[in-house]
Design a protein around this nucleic acid. Structure first.
Lengths: 219, 219
DNA sequence: GTTTAATCGATAAAATTTTACCCTTTTAGA
DNA sequence: TCTAAAAGGGTAAAATTTTATCGATTAAAC
């Protein structure tokens, strides 16, 4: 009944292609063409879509509008959530300035930092607020999501504080695995993880082409 | 023989904990304590480690130094690769300024952008270079890895150019699935993907606690 | 020295995810 | 109208990944 995590991870890509197709004036899209765009297996796309309960029409495909709405809904991106950022360093600043979150139902509404030098400065459209004002801000604005972009050494302390203030979802960019109570959800996003996969694949690829090179020498 | 992708994705976390333990003066670490730190299953950790060929000692665990070296080697992080960034926007700038890449064998050596306003400006320790100078730079410095941080609409064009210049590995931050020849490796890193998982988990969690609330009402 | 408890390692089972197969539906064209 | 081709959908198989089980090993405590 519940949707597999790998499927959920593919959903944002589907949305992206769907939007593209819609902008191109199309009304229907087949699993096959979705798959082609994304380099996926069409059967897998169909299976992913089937988990939303949406049905397609043979020879035509799926109704783009309907599919978009369902996926958006499954992801909970149809209701915008306010979120705040803790940590006004490079990454925090970049995220604060990034304007693409709106399309996935996330609205950054404030940026916090503990450094006296940063408090009061401007990042994009935000004025950096102090950690002392965090609790009140969360409660007055009923914030349930926080983005952590502080150094690893401070991440757990910040996390604990956020949890105490009532935050329920944490998007953690610090390279640190946070301990939270069962009622709180943490998702860690780690550049290193992604780069590890690139490294290994590239290493393998380079080794292959070296092999080819030596094969060629033997001709 | 080849290491599963999920295992590779966990390797950077292992390295992080290993470093931490080493700094704490420890010489050995058990799969169990690694697992505890990361919220993983100890059996899984042992299995992951076994794919490196390293053997541990019962009752003691694994030699931290040895394990670190092997994992680093498997990831190819023992040889530093020079890389360049294309796209000096928010994200590109943040990445250029980020100093944590060194620990995973990645050294950003230049930043490129096509915008005349940005060329010549300074980002961290880099002076933004023009796209015209890209080809020459790649060849003179034998760069094989590029980071793409341009908008989605330009990503494929930039990618094609990079491939033509001889780039073999592309770390793509643009929300766009790039088509590359078979000899090139692309890894896409997407904030939306990560956030999707958080959204769904959080939605489920919030629904659960709503259920509990209503249950309590019934008492 | 013996016992105990922690841990490893190998193999097997379970769970999850991806892929294959085959049949049905529907549109477009002969 | 009939036929062909392009999907979709359901079920089952295959592949991958995670978890369990159990015996073997080893340092530390007694």
């Amino acid at each position: 009944m519940s949707i597999p995590i790998p499927t959920i991870k593919r959903f944002p890509s589907y949305l992206r292609i769907l939007n593209q197709a819609k902008e191109g004036g199309r009304k229907y899209i087949s699993a096959t063409s979705l798959a082609n765009e994304l380099g996926l297996n069409p059967i897998q796309v169909r299976k992913d879509i089937s988990s939303t309960g949406i049905e397609g029409k043979p020879k035509i495909g799926f109704d783009i509008e309907e599919l978009t709405q369902y996926i958006t809904h499954v992801l909970g991106w149809d209701n915008t959530s306010d979120a705040l950022i803790v940590g006004a360093g490079n990454l925090g600043s970049a995220i604060a300035r990034y304007d693409g979150f709106a399309s996935y139902g996330l609205k950054i509404v404030a940026v916090f930092d503990k450094s006296a030098e940063k408090i009061g400065t401007t990042i994009g459209s935000f004025t950096v607020k102090s950690m002392e004002s965090l609790n009140r801000f969360i409660n007055e604005n009923r914030i349930s999501i926080a983005v952590i972009t502080v150094p690893a050494s401070q991440a757990q302390a910040v996390c604990d504080l956020l949890v105490k203030c009532g935050i329920r979802g944490i998007w953690n960019f610090a390279p640190k695995d946070l301990k939270v109570p069962e009622s709180v959800v943490v998702q860690r996003t780690d550049l290193a993880t992604s780069f590890a996969v690139l490294s290994v694949k590239l290493g393998k690829k380079l080794a292959e082409s070296d092999d080819l090179d030596s094969d060629e020498d033997m001709i």
